[in-house]
Every structure is written in structure tokens, then in C-alpha cells.
């Protein structure tokens, strides 16, 4: 089976790319693919708790992400540098994640067959 990596590097709001990347992740889960999600750069903001999306007429993206484990999406990684630069810690997030260094991320990309970069 091919290993699929979905990289989310955009903030949760501003464009619909954040949501559309997660829709691909959910489709991968529905088709039982070997899929990994990686949050990088401003993408780590997508995972932050208590998003008040109503006030800007958007659906709460954090809520969508918090449901990922229900769809058996459990390989969720974050870039620890992106987290620390933005003063975000694991306690601030809506789902359990695993921290990766930039070396780990290179290795993850290398062993992936398909990369979606959003």
C-alpha cells in the first residue's frame, strides 16, 4: 500500500485550503489508506483549542480536527520548531500529536510515496 503524507501549512482561516486538506485526509481514512498528517508552519494554528470561528462566519476548524481520531486518523504529527516559534504547546491542541524535528520530517517525506502539500 502506498504511504500518503498530507502536509498542512496554512492557518485555519483566511482560505479554505486548511479545510480542503482535511477533507482529503478524511477521504483517505474512508478508503483505509496508510495516511499521515503533518502540521507545519502556520498550519499548527489549525490545531489550537477554543477557536471562535462563529464570529467570522466560519465553521470551527478545530472541531473538525478534534474528530479525526473517530475516523481512525491517528498518525498526526507537528513540527516542533513551528510550535515553539508560535509559543504553542501540546496542551493547547485539540488532538494528541507527536512532535517531529526537521530531521524527522525529512525522513517522513522520504519514506512517503505520495505527498499532498496544502
Amino acid at each position: 500500500m502506498k504511504r500518503i503524507l498530507i502536509i498542512c501549512r496554512k492557518p485555519p482561516y483566511g482560505t479554505s485550503l486548511s479545510r480542503e486538506a482535511i477533507d482529503i485526509a478524511l477521504a483517505c481514512a474512508a478508503f483505509e489508506q496508510d495516511m499521515t498528517l503533518l502540521f507545519l508552519d502556520d498550519g499548527v494554528f489549525q490545531l489550537v483549542k477554543d477557536q471562535q470561528a462563529d464570529s467570522i462566519n466560519c465553521k470551527n476548524h478545530g472541531k473538525v480536527l478534534s474528530a479525526l481520531p473517530l475516523y481512525e486518523v491517528d498518525q498526526i504529527f507537528v513540527d516542533c520548531q513551528s510550535m515553539s516559534k508560535r509559543l504553542i504547546t501540546a496542551d493547547d491542541l485539540v488532538v494528541p500529536v507527536e512532535n517531529l524535528s526537521s530531521e524527522d520530517i525529512s525522513a517522513l517525506m522520504q519514506k512517503s510515496d505520495v505527498i499532498f502539500n496544502f
Binding site: K2, I4, I24, L26, A27, C28, V114, F116
Partner: peptide, 11 residues
């Protein structure tokens, strides 16, 4: 069509 077609294409 749906995203299944994208997953299928990637595979």
C-alpha cells in the same frame, strides 16, 4: 465526483 477519485489517482 468525490475525493475518492483523487485518492484512487494518487494510488
Amino acid at each position: 465526483s468525490g475525493l475518492g477519485q483523487l485518492i484512487d489517482a494518487s494510488v
